[in-house]
């Protein structure tokens, strides 16, 4: 089950920790602050994303993830509201799921995009904690497709290893497709099936019946909402009492 903490850090303007499916990500947001002259954009805010892996130094994988997260967050943050400024997002991966059957840490094969849902949910919570205006919310899920076409939602490390393709699909709160990242080999039909399932998981569209038992409707959103509600009521009781 997902769990999240709002504002665990003191120095950053806003922060959040989000854990789901074995992944745990800590996000710090600083901004809006002065952008360096060479980075500054005349009509919108620069969204700068940095991902720090749990071990070792940032390599090609985290740069790739950074570009995906940056593109998605640029659509979510109201960048036009903070022209010529910088919103700096730092994501620290705290924990990644471990395989029981492989010697710890010798195991490198599993995919990089499986961490995306945790990265984006953590950044959105942290942006909210910084009070940066957003134009929408997003919900993501990861789906692994096995060799014989079986579909696993929020797959474990073993399921990812056994899968022929892995997909991370995210929808905005308006129900539009926001992120579609896939790895492995698959065809159009598989992708459409996966995107249907992901749509159902992300926004609980019950009219579509694809014979899949989805017990985690609204999982990310419910959790984020309850975290926000608890925090706000804490602040409120502090300021009034």
């Amino acid at each position: 089950m997902a769990s999240s903490t709002l504002s665990p850090l003191s120095r950053a303007d806003g922060s959040a920790q989000y854990s789901f499916n074995g992944y745990s990500v800590l996000c710090a947001v600083n901004g809006p602050m002065e952008a360096q002259r060479r980075d500054e954009l005349p009509e919108e805010a620069v969204v700068d994303v940095a991902i720090i892996p749990a071990t070792g130094i940032a390599g090609v994988t985290s740069k790739h993830l950074e570009s995906i997260v940056q593109k998605a967050l640029r659509q979510i943050v109201l960048v036009a509201a903070h022209a010529r400024s910088l919103i700096q997002i730092t994501l620290q991966i705290i924990a990644t799921p471990e395989s029981d059957h492989q010697p710890a840490r010798l195991h490198q094969s599993f995919s990089s995009i499986a961490v995306l849902p945790a990265l984006l949910q953590a950044s959105i919570l942290a942006l909210l904690s910084t009070s940066i205006p957003l134009c929408m919310f997003t919900n993501l899920t990861s789906v692994a497709v096995g060799a014989n076409g079986d579909v696993a939602l929020d797959p474990s490390v073993e399921e990812v290893d056994a899968a022929t393709s892995l997909h991370v699909i995210g929808f905005s709160s308006q129900g539009d497709l926001l992120i579609a990242e896939s790895e492995g080999s698959f065809n159009i039909a598989t992708w459409e099936q996966v995107s249907d399932i992901a749509g159902t998981v992300c926004w609980g569209d019950l009219t579509r019946d694809n014979g899949l038992q989805v017990s985690k409707f609204w999982k990310h959103e419910l959790n984020c909402e309850s975290t926000l509600r608890t925090k706000i009521s804490q602040w409120y009781s502090k300021s009034t009492g």
Binding site: A12, D13, A28, A50, I52, A58, T90
Partner: peptide, 15 residues
């Protein structure tokens, strides 16, 4: 042993 100071610790650190 490697140490890393990111903007998470304080905004003036750069990656």
């Amino acid at each position: 042993i490697t140490t890393e100071l990111s903007p998470m610790a304080a905004p003036h650190f750069e990656i």
